[in-house]
């Protein structure tokens, strides 16, 4: 489902990622940790073709990202949903419109769109705000809109960049519950976070630790990620 081999990436002379390799099977859950500036966002951007792959190999949902023609990018992004660190939602559109956008570009019919949008919005506790302009929402609410838009399409792979960064503990737990739910239904999840709290709360998830662009630690487990209790780290 997701294969990264010897991946490196530089911005000018600065190497933000150095020789990273890992792979995930369908339905696995990965916590990507590391302090700010470690390269988490860069790694995620490479996975959804927002940055070009220059060194190494990346295969996501069957797409070889190194040789991906530009017209295939929309198809890749229909398999891979992203929750962006800066949300990327439109302030002058309502919660409903922002969430529906992801389904509309796929040309689904209105009734279907309506049903799915309402279900997801309800699941994230945004129902009272559904017709509010996103610009009027708090940071935490906006973040939930971003999450709603990415999960509403039922993606094969979900990439989330600090999705709990602006949330209090209770909401963060609720958000994790949502990710977990999708994960249970077979979605492969990669969640980037600098919070060690989240790692402590989910010792059962797979973990990769990035430092200065390098994978410095991995906690690699079997399929029943959330039910496992043993912690095992090797570098």
């Amino acid at each position: 489902m997701l294969n990264v081999t010897n991946l490196s990436h530089n911005f000018g002379s600065y190497w933000a990622l150095k020789n990273c390799s890992f792979s995930l099977k369908k339905g696995e859950f990965l916590l990507l940790t590391g302090s700010s500036g470690a390269g988490k966002t860069t790694l995620l951007r490479l996975l959804y073709a927002s940055l070009p792959v220059m060194r190494g190999k990346v295969n996501v949902a069957g797409y070889d990202l190194k040789n991906l023609p530009a017209r295939q990018i929309p198809n890749l992004r229909r398999s891979v949903s992203v929750v962006f660190q800066d949300f990327k939602i439109l302030p002058y559109r309502t919660v409903y419109q922002n969430v529906a956008m992801a389904l509309e570009v796929r040309g689904l019919n209105q009734i279907h769109i309506d049903r799915r949008v309402r279900a997801v919005v309800r699941g994230l506790g945004l129902e009272p705000r559904i017709n509010t302009l996103c610009g009027e929402l708090s940071g935490g609410e906006q973040q939930r809109v971003a999450v709603a838009r990415s999960v509403v399409v039922n993606p094969k792979i979900l990439l989330a960049d600090e999705p709990t960064g602006n949330l209090d503990e209770e909401l963060a737990a609720r958000m994790m519950g949502i990710f977990k739910q999708f994960h249970m239904h077979g979605t492969t999840v990669v969640l980037a976070t600098h919070s060690s709290e989240l790692v402590r709360m989910h010792p059962e998830a797979r973990q990769l630790r990035l430092e200065h662009g390098k994978i410095v630690a991995a906690n690699w487990r079997g399929a029943q990620i959330f039910s496992e209790k043993i912690k095992e780290v090797h570098s």
Binding site: N75, S81, K88, V105
Partner: peptide
């Protein structure tokens, strides 16, 4: 912004 987001959620060029 809107166009960037549309592209990120998988909109094709003609859309």
């Amino acid at each position: 912004d809107e166009i960037e987001i549309l592209k990120l959620v998988g909109a094709k060029n003609w859309y």
